[in-house]
Every structure is written in structure tokens, then in C-alpha cells.
Amino acid sequence: MANTSQSKKRARQADARHDINKARRSRIRTFLRKVEEAITAGDHAVAVEALRLAQPELARGVTKGVLHKNTVSRKISRLASRVKALDKTAA
């Protein structure tokens, strides 16, 4: 338990950041889920649009310190390759 006023304040700040980061992670997961659903449905146009909207959201997660840079880079790369493969199977 926090004893000093400084440690109490840091505990309050940590709680606030936790709530903000939790909401941000949830928002990112929602964007990723939309891309996954479009890929599963086999709809290339919707998948491309969903990926286009998801990329800045993932990048924002990096700048806010919620996700690691390489993790986001890997996710975007894998999603992009799956969306691109979806176009080849449709054609």
C-alpha cells in the first residue's frame, strides 16, 4: 500500500493509465477483428478497407506505448499478405 503522497499519486496515475490503455487495446482489437472477419468472409474490397483503417490505429498503439513496434509491424505485414492472397484466390 502506498504511504507517501508521491506514491499515492503514482498509484492513482497508474490506475488511470491502465483504464486508458485497456480501452485503447480494446479499440485496436476491434479493428483487427473487422479485418479478420472480412478475410474469413472472402470479401477482398471490405478486407482492404478494414486493413486501411486498422493500420493507423495499430501505429497509434505503438506511439502511445500500448504495443511494441515490431509486434505491430508483424501484424500489419501478416494481415496485408493475407488480404493480398485473398485477391489472388478471387481472381
Rank of each mutant, 00 (worst) to 15 (best):
I28H: 04
A47P: 02
A59H: 09
R17T: 05
R25F: 04
D43N: 15
R29I: 03
A23G: 09
K34L: 08
A47H: 05
L53P: 01
H44P: 05
V62H: 08
G42V: 02
Q55L: 05
I76T: 09
T4R: 01
K9S: 08
L32K: 11
I20R: 02
A54M: 00
A41R: 09
R10L: 13
R24C: 00
R60T: 09
D87L: 10
R12G: 05
E37F: 02
T71A: 15
S77W: 07
R82L: 10
S73Q: 11
N21K: 08
V62E: 09
L86S: 06
E36S: 15
L67E: 13
D15S: 07
R25Q: 06
R24G: 03
L58I: 07
A54E: 01
R12S: 07
A23Y: 05
A91E: 14
A16G: 04
N70S: 13
V66R: 11
K69M: 08
R82I: 05
H68D: 15
M1K: 08
E57Q: 09
A38F: 02
K84N: 07
K69I: 05
A59V: 11
K69P: 04
K34N: 12
R60W: 00
I39N: 00
K84L: 05
I76W: 02
E57A: 08
S73I: 05
H44L: 03
F31M: 13
G61V: 03
G65D: 04
S81E: 09
K64N: 13
K8R: 15
E36N: 11
A91S: 06
R12F: 09
A11R: 09
K88Q: 15
A45G: 13
S5F: 13
R78Y: 06
N70E: 12
N21T: 01
H18W: 12
H68L: 14
I76Q: 03
S77H: 14
R74E: 07
V83C: 01
E57F: 02
T71V: 13
V72R: 10
S77I: 05
V62L: 00
A85R: 10
V83K: 02
Q13K: 10
A11K: 10
R12E: 13
T71Y: 12
R52T: 12
N21S: 06
A16L: 11
S73M: 10
A2Y: 09
A14F: 02
E49W: 03
A11L: 14
G65S: 03
M1T: 12
A85C: 02
S73R: 08
E37M: 14
D19V: 04
T71F: 15
F31P: 05
S77L: 13
R27L: 13
K84H: 06
L79V: 00
L53A: 14
L51S: 03
N3D: 07
R27W: 01
A14W: 07
L32T: 12
I20F: 10
R24I: 07
S5A: 14
K69Q: 15
Q55K: 12
K8A: 06
A45D: 15
A50L: 03
L86K: 07
V66N: 02
V83I: 00
R25H: 01
S77D: 11
T4W: 01
R12W: 09
Q6A: 12
A38V: 01
R25V: 01
P56T: 00
D87N: 15
H68V: 03
